[in-house]
């Protein structure tokens, strides 16, 4: 892992097909912190993640990694700076789970030693609880198993910036907590971690900061307690909620009566 430069989106907008998907978003992904990106469906979370990953060119504004514009980096340089877990993780041929995880080391081919490769792979396999799946073929796995294998592939990429798009979507309760613990551990180890989440309580429990997107704009960013207020959630999600405190973290509970 190389030293973590900051990743900064400066007044970023994205237009597609005459619609503005992201509108003037400015924020910084800080090393050592876990940032949860939340917001209603279609708020532009995945688009923002795509811009931060350098795969989408912003229509206006810039994204910089340290001093350099992210889009100016070569593909391989970017792949050594940031790893991305996408929502779609289909594999077109019946590769074994181990093969898929090993592919995450591709950016370091000829740079890392075999021992480093093995260590990274081993750690990721344990962190995602997939050791028993290694010899299975990827297409034969369930949705949740695939999500964990894909996360392992992202972890072995061993980048200072880690972007996870809904890593908990297909997972059971236990594995959801596992994944968030992994994400928090990455942040504690000095990496910049961005996680797109739908579960606001999960976000509040693990994130250092929460960024709330609404209609392509950044509605709020800050500590969970500051962002998750009944007023803001009612305005953005159009649902009334109570905020309950549990073990020091806010729990977001919709009023169902």
């Amino acid at each position: 892992m190389i030293a973590t430069p900051s990743l900064r989106a400066d007044r970023v907008s994205v237009d597609t097909g005459g619609r503005t998907i992201l509108d003037d978003v400015t924020f910084e992904v800080v090393p050592g912190a876990l940032l949860a990106l939340v917001g209603p469906n279609g708020a532009g979370k995945s688009t923002l993640l795509g811009v931060l990953a350098g795969e989408l060119a912003p229509s206006r504004g810039t994204v910089r990694l340290g001093e350099r514009r992210l889009r100016e980096l070569r593909h391989l340089e970017r792949s050594r700076a940031r790893a991305v877990l996408t929502q779609e993780n289909a594999v077109s041929f019946p590769f074994s789970v181990r093969d898929v995880v090993e592919m995450g080391r591709a950016p370091w081919a000829r740079l890392a030693s075999l021992a480093e490769d093995e260590a990274a792979i081993d750690a990721a396999i344990d962190a995602t609880d997939i050791r028993h799946l290694l010899t299975r073929t990827y297409p034969s796995l369930s949705g949740g198993e695939r999500a964990r294998v894909s996360l392992a592939r992202v972890l072995v990429q061993d980048t200072p910036i880690v972007l996870l798009d809904e890593p908990t979507a297909a997972l059971d309760l236990g594995h959801q907590e596992d994944v968030m613990r992994v994400a928090r551990r990455l942040a504690r180890a000095g990496r910049a971690v961005v996680v797109v989440l739908h579960d606001l309580s999960l976000a509040a429990a693990y994130a250092d900061r929460i960024a709330l997107l609404a209609d392509g704009r950044l509605a709020a960013i800050g500590a969970p307690d500051a962002v998750l207020t009944p007023e803001l959630i009612a305005r953005v999600y159009r649902v009334d909620v109570d905020i309950v405190r549990h073990e020091g973290a806010p729990l977001v509970v919709p009023r169902r009566a």
Binding site: R78, A83, A106
Partner: peptide, 20 residues
Amino acid sequence: APRYDLLALGERNARHLGVN
């Protein structure tokens, strides 16, 4: 060939892993 392996993960994932 190694790039074709990565391409099996899908276009976006291959790109994220440094493949043009």
